[in-house]
Measured scan of single mutants.
Amino acid sequence: DWREIAKLAEEALKKQQPVTVNGQTFNDPNEIKKLLETAQKAI
Results as ranks from 00 to 15, higher is better:
Asp1Val: 09
Asp1Gly: 11
Asp1Leu: 11
Asp1Glu: 11
Asp1Arg: 11
Asp1Thr: 14
Asp1Ala: 11
Asp1Ser: 15
Asp1Tyr: 15
Trp2Gly: 02
Trp2Glu: 02
Trp2Lys: 02
Arg3Ile: 14
Arg3Val: 15
Arg3Trp: 15
Arg3Tyr: 15
Arg3Ala: 14
Glu4Ala: 09
Glu4Arg: 07
Glu4His: 07
Glu4Asn: 08
Glu4Val: 11
Glu4Gln: 11
Ile5Thr: 05
Ile5Met: 04
Ile5Trp: 04
Ala6Asp: 01
Ala6Ile: 15
Ala6Cys: 12
Ala6Phe: 12
Ala6Lys: 09
Ala6Tyr: 15
Lys7Leu: 08
Lys7Tyr: 12
Leu8Ser: 06
Leu8Asn: 08
Leu8Arg: 08
Leu8Val: 09
Leu8Asp: 04
Leu8His: 05
Ala9Leu: 15
Ala9Glu: 00
Ala9Trp: 04
Ala9Ser: 06
Glu10Tyr: 12
Glu11Ser: 08
Glu11Trp: 07
Glu11His: 08
Glu11Ala: 07
Glu11Leu: 06
Ala12Tyr: 02
Ala12Val: 02
Ala12Cys: 03
Leu13Phe: 04
Leu13Asn: 02
Leu13Ala: 02
Leu13Thr: 02
Leu13Met: 07
Lys14Asp: 06
Lys14Gln: 09
Lys14Arg: 12
Lys14Leu: 13
Lys15Asn: 15
Lys15Pro: 00
Lys15Glu: 09
Lys15Gly: 09
Lys15Asp: 09
Gln16Val: 08
Gln16Phe: 10
Gln16Gly: 15
Gln17Thr: 14
Gln17Ser: 12
Pro18Lys: 06
Pro18Cys: 05
Pro18Leu: 04
Pro18Met: 06
Pro18Asn: 05
Pro18His: 10
Pro18Thr: 06
Thr20Pro: 01
Thr20Phe: 08
Val21Ser: 03
Val21His: 05
Asn22Glu: 05
Asn22Trp: 10
Asn22Val: 03
Gly23Glu: 03
Gly23Gln: 04
Gly23Asp: 07
Gly23Leu: 03
Gly23Tyr: 04
Gly23Pro: 00
Gln24Phe: 15
Gln24Arg: 09
Gln24Met: 14
Phe26Gln: 02
Phe26Leu: 11
Asn27Cys: 07
Asn27Phe: 14
Asn27Asp: 13
Asn27Gln: 09
Asp28Arg: 04
Asp28Glu: 11
Asp28Ile: 04
Asp28Trp: 15
Pro29Gly: 05
Pro29Val: 13
Pro29Met: 14
Pro29His: 10
Pro29Arg: 11
Asn30Ala: 14
Asn30Gln: 13
Glu31Ala: 08
Glu31Ser: 10
Glu31Gln: 08
Glu31His: 07
Glu31Phe: 10
Glu31Val: 09
Glu31Ile: 10
Ile32Phe: 01
Ile32Asn: 00
Ile32Met: 02
Ile32Trp: 03
Ile32Gln: 02
Lys33Asn: 05
Lys34Asn: 12
Lys34Ser: 12
Lys34Met: 05
Lys34Gly: 04
Leu35Ala: 02
Leu35Trp: 04
Leu35Pro: 01
Leu35Asp: 01
Leu35Phe: 04
Leu35Lys: 00
Leu36Met: 07
Leu36Thr: 01
Leu36Glu: 02
Glu37Ser: 06
Glu37Met: 09
Thr38Cys: 08
Thr38Ser: 12
Thr38Asp: 12
Thr38Met: 15
Thr38Tyr: 02
Thr38Glu: 15
Ala39Asp: 02
Ala39Lys: 00
Lys41Phe: 07
Lys41Asp: 08
Lys41Ala: 15
Lys41Tyr: 09
Lys41Gly: 08
Lys41Asn: 14
Ala42Pro: 03
Ala42Ser: 09
Ala42Arg: 05
Ala42Phe: 15
Ala42Asn: 15
Ile43Glu: 07
Ile43Gly: 06
Ile43Asn: 06
